[in-house]
Write a protein that binds this DNA or RNA. Structure first.
Lengths: 220, 220
DNA sequence: CTTATATTTAACTAAATGGTTAAACCAAAC
DNA sequence: GTTTGGTTTAACCATTTAGTTAAATATAAG
């Protein structure tokens, strides 16, 4: 009788999925407790099984939903660009924004990478592969036009995806690290900032002739 | 009676720690089962509690051991370098090699980042902070000497650490992704290759005057 | 041989956890 | 009012899991 019972917002299924995303992101698949998810959603555990299914189905639903949103965001922000350079900027920015929007994607993805995708349904893998493929396409196109240096595409797109995911997912641990070493405090940058700066840095190292881009990036 | 029982190598404690590192890396803290670790080490579960302690202590021991090894490797490979550019190459290479050497560090680190360090003892956090601090020092030094562009240090060192960890940790999932999209097969690059190429790419984007470095990086 | 100490084992416990079920509730249709 | 369908609830079950314990076995010392 503490304070729970908040059935206000949205349909039951939505509330369950939202709660599940939060818990799965912070606790991982094995760490998450079904009762805990139900409690946070303000529903009885049995409703969770009634509306969605067992733990694995619930997780699959969350991952798929989150990845779908991210993919939509990416392809939406990718229309206007023409040159490989513009496309590169657009795709990095789009990934950063999309990932930043679904707040729980970075943690979930990091864990899935770590476990080799142990809990990922096939459909979710397709979603991931789509993102990778988009980055890669832009990269190879630029290389074929002789605009980008002949860098390892695998390395590059893992660098981009890894940087974004890592940076966004590390928000909770950064304050703890900052307390120990004199690291910069939790500079709460927006995903857009991250995307823009990352694109600048990588592009600068990627272009054949040292294009001066939009000048040096502003510090912190 | 399948095939277990292999007590040959090393002391009991060592065997337990090795088995624990493997399981924790692939399953995560919550996913790992103490019985499973004991079985892989070829010992009775009670021995694990006798020699080391409970699950949390065991995990702490593994993380600390792994991080200590990595830190040693990093500072060892960092002596010869003088200029910021050399130092940068050295530190990136050292991190890649150190992380690559303790095969289970990438997975463990990715999970810890994702959970905000939920299972990390203070000492392990200090180990992490040390690595970050090393990268950061090199970076800032180069910037103060006017050799590096004024990029965001936080972004840069998370990019480096994130790229390396992400790339090394993703080895198990890459074949699965490759099956779906026409991604490059699991190009089994050595940590040294990764470190060298990454340093090239980032340095090229980092230097003020477009130094041509050691030429373009070889593809895959 | 006997005693003491370190190590290993099998059996057990208590709690947590995923999942189920049968009954209650509630709205609209008849 | 009662029937019908979807929805919600409380109580329950079976299994898994971390952790313990007391006995057994080896090993070395006196």
């Amino acid at each position: 009788m503490e304070d729970a019972e908040r059935k206000q917002t949205g349909g039951t299924t939505e509330r369950i999925l939202k709660a599940a995303a939060e818990i799965f992101a912070s606790e991982g698949y094995d760490g998450a407790r079904v009762d805990q998810i139900a409690e946070r959603a303000g529903v009885n555990k049995a409703m969770l099984y009634y509306h969605i299914g067992d733990k694995a189905e619930l997780y699959g639903e969350v991952v798929l939903d989150t990845l779908k949103r991210a993919n939509e965001g990416i392809s939406a922000n990718l229309q206007a660009a023409n040159t490989p350079e513009d496309k590169f900027r657009a795709v990095v920015l789009a990934v950063a924004q999309a990932v930043g929007q679904s707040r729980h994607l970075p943690q979930i993805m990091l864990r899935e990478i770590a476990s080799g995708g142990a809990n990922l349904p096939e459909s979710a893998l397709r979603g991931m592969a789509g993102v990778f493929s988009t980055i890669r396409t832009v990269l190879v196109e630029g290389q074929e036009q002789g605009i980008f240096r002949d860098v390892n595409p695998l390395l590059t797109h893992f660098m981009i995806a890894g940087s974004i995911l890592f940076l966004l997912a590390s928000a909770p641990i950064r304050p703890r690290l900052a307390k120990i070493e004199s690291l910069p405090e939790a500079t709460a940058e927006s995903p857009s900032d991250i995307g823009t700066q990352l694109a600048d840095l990588v592009l600068n190292g990627l272009m054949c002739k040292a294009a001066d881009g939009p000048g040096p990036v502003s510090p912190v």
